[in-house]
Design a protein around this nucleic acid. Structure first.
Lengths: 341, 341
DNA sequence: TACGCCATTGCCAGCGCTGGCACAAGTCGA
DNA sequence: TCGACTTGTGCCAGCGCTGGCAATGGCGTA
């Protein structure tokens, strides 16, 4: 009954004793139950603050049959925005009493599902947030059907089998980029695509391709990509060897755009005078490159927060309107300019 | 007694029943206790595999009076290497039954300690790994004295008050960079320093400054920095306005080096013909810049793994020899060359 | 005045696991 | 052959918390 039986930490019993109520009432306060008298609540809260009491996560998890943990799964393709995303999720999660457990996927495709399932079972998280390109792995949703899973930044194409995805307006953004380049006078345009399995990349592409096609004089060449810098380099070498050489290239993420920029420098093609380059993500990288990269800003923090909110609602069995879509914003910088005459 | 009382998950009781032993013996197998007969162990492991049983983290934590959670604290200065570090920690942790909980610190200095203490109490992690520059916050070690804390990438200077730090050979690396630049013929040299509170940055600086000073004809100008890109830009503007203008600049991390590169481009100073630039960290950024950045590769994954191993040993009360130091490697790339004549 | 109802609060029984013993069985030297 | 060990296993008692009731007290209403 007295203070801190084993660990030295105060327990709910200590709080109850000090406040002169039963532990059940303290528990109600902790869980924000409405069935507690306002005065009682206040006095208990005062005792909690005074004792610096924190409920034991383990005991709570055991009694509630939940772990109060949310998992985040990603791989290093997201390195540049990982912090933003983690912050977005952790903020929402901690407000609801959850903590964020992260797991990096192996880089290779093979074994991703096994690895993820093992992680989910081992860590006993209550729900999972998955970032692309991991979320594009076929069969993932099925393999993880024991717990709620949210995918961030997938498009509205229900390709992936996930019940819940946080969407952003990829198609619109793709067509925005195309129109921007067309208005600058570009007619010979290249595109470095994102991974085939990632739906958002496909929507982005669809928006871009559609808008370019609407201009009769414009031609488009595409190259495959997987979001990696190396692939950006490869794709750029391919595109810049084409005849006629593109005067503008849209890369599906900033990292591949950096690869394009790198190749342009090596080939002594002036950016933006001879070649305009547009990236995607609006990551910190855009500022660091020379010239600074024109890119499409994706609100990763907000998207992650939305994902976390929806996920927690699902875990707790609440109904929440489906997450609305997030707008994307084209941010012009130094890497784009009028088409050369 | 029968299967899966509440959550549908198999419990240790199910395993014990199926294997025809008591739950205590199953528990011993789970905890790798040596006091189990080899045959018994094998048959229990078979049942565990067959039932796909995973011990409940909550129950385990409650009974062991530990959360089996390790916290990682960082802020976005580490964005580029965050994934590597998380992977390094998570790998070691999961092998020992721990999971990694991450927390991003607020960017502003004020309130970092309060935020961290709140996180540590709320999440009930068993131990914490702290990355710089967060680890350089004065008073942090004292505030977190309830749980073991490891700091990664601090130097051997016991400035910070942490009992355990994973060190790397910062001083040596600093002097390596200096000698490298001196051998290339540079005599007018600039340095963009790291944050004042971060001991590793100070050691690095000491090694660099000392080695430059050993060359009688060499002169050094320094500028303050805080690891951010913006500060790299500011520092570069300052250094490149000096007379005589430095022919080489060493930045305390890659991100600030990117800022220097940016300013050089803006001022139309050719790199490396007129100005050599050396970064620090060996992050992915080095490849993405043009010219590719000469940098010092820090083995973040290995350092993180060492930190995790030592931390877990401390949590479990084991004795472990203090973490050895990690060597750093200068990796020449395109941003450095002979001093202009 | 008696009854039913609502707002609060307390009691009991676990959640699934591990620590500390006690105990059964086998081993060995005297 | 017997006690003294060693090895392997089982039993009991929680760890700190929450869920489902039952219990309490105050009040309006018939």
């Amino acid at each position: 009954m007295s203070a801190s039986k084993a660990t030295g930490e105060p327990t709910i019993d200590d709080v109850a004793a000090a406040a002169g109520v039963s532990i059940r009432t303290v528990s109600r306060v902790l869980n924000k139950s409405p069935k507690v008298n306002e005065n009682t609540r206040r006095s208990i809260e005062a005792v909690i603050a005074q004792l610096n009491f924190r409920p034991s996560r383990g005991a709570r998890a055991l009694a509630m049959r939940r772990s109060l943990l949310i998992g985040l799964v990603h791989n290093d393709q997201n390195a540049l925005v990982l912090d933003t995303i983690q912050r977005g999720i952790a903020g929402v999660a901690s407000r609801s009493g959850y903590e964020l457990v992260v797991h990096s996927c192996p880089a290779e495709d093979s074994g991703v599902i096994e690895d993820l399932v093992a992680f989910a079972e081992r860590s006993r998280v209550d729900g999972l947030v998955v970032l692309p390109p991991v979320s594009g792995v076929p069969g993932l949703a099925q393999a993880l059907n024991r717990i709620p899973v949210m995918a961030v930044a997938l498009s509205s194409i229900p390709l992936s089998g996930f019940a819940d995805v946080v969407v952003s307006e990829e198609r619109q953004a793709g067509s925005d980029v195309a129109r921007y380049l067309l208005e600058l006078g570009h007619r010979s345009i290249g595109m470095v695509n994102g991974p085939v399995g990632v739906a958002s990349a496909q929507e982005r592409r669809a928006g871009f391709v559609g808008a370019v096609a609407s201009e009769p004089n414009a031609s488009l060449i595409e190259a495959a990509g997987d979001y990696s810098f190396e692939y950006g380099v490869l794709a750029a070498e391919q595109l810049l060897a084409a005849t006629p050489r593109p005067t503008a290239i849209f890369a599906a993420n900033d990292i591949m755009a950096a690869g394009v920029l790198k190749v342009a420098a090596r080939l002594r093609i002036a950016v933006p005078e001879e070649l305009s380059i547009v990236g995607f993500d609006g990551s910190a990288l855009t500022r660091m490159l020379t010239p600074a990269l024109t890119s499409v800003l994706r609100p990763f923090g907000a998207m992650a927060a939305t994902a976390a909110e929806t996920l927690i609602a699902r875990i707790e069995g609440k109904d929440l309107p489906p997450a609305g879509s997030h707008p994307l914003e084209l941010v012009p910088a130094e890497s784009t300019g009028p088409a050369p005459v």
